[in-house]
Amino acid sequence: MHGFANPKRFLSLAQWLTPLLLASGLIVTAVALFWGVTSVPPDRLMGETVRILFIHVPTAWLGMGGWSAIAISSLVFLVWRHPLAAIAARAAAVPGLVFTIICLATGSIWGRPTWGTWWVWDGRLTSMLVLAFLYLAYIALAQAAEREGVSARIPAIFGLLGAVNIPIINRSVVWWNSLHQPPSITMGKSAIDAVFLQPLLLAVLGFSLIFGGVVLARMRALLADIQAEARLRRRALEAD
């Protein structure tokens, strides 16, 4: 594992892994969504709106998965001081935010015909909105730290602090009476009929591949940025 912490070795690996993940993710997601939209029967109560499940659930999981990635990378950065870990954490923030926003938007669109309201302040919806704000704050903090030359340890500590919200989102529908339904998929059991579950799991795989590809692409871009900056600085010194 330590071998890939070397930026050079990481870059040569990421160079071919990035397009592979992105292309396979797009294909798998397209197949899963086409399957979900065209070949799945309507739900007994929700009817056609059940199809939003195939976007809502994968984006919700990856919205939380993105922050888990930030927290783990931040821990690795704080303890072992690998610079690549700080870059990985920064790279996961924007896709995590985008997926969280898609999750909130699709949930709201589903909520109007199903519950009869666009939004309620129950435990699950509120904690998910807090996650979106945490992402915004993290992105602002990481950018400010880089621009002002402050230690990358500050966004890393924030990334670890924000991880407290992840178990709260997960347990919110169990601890508190909420309008959002309790978890359908728990350890080895599913209350979702196989007709819906199969395209759903395929969509989760497809979205995860896209997420991985975007994170790698952003890590490469951040590394290239750092290199270009260092080269410019060296040139400026030589010119003096």
């Binding site: 739900d43 059940v50 519950w115 339904q181 978890p183 359908s184 209350a191 979702i192 007709v195």
Partner: peptide
């Protein structure tokens, strides 16, 4: 009134 959906997804 708000309708609350449960965790079960069953085709019609």
């Amino acid at each position: 009134l708000l309708a609350k959906h449960d965790e079960n997804y069953v085709p019609r």
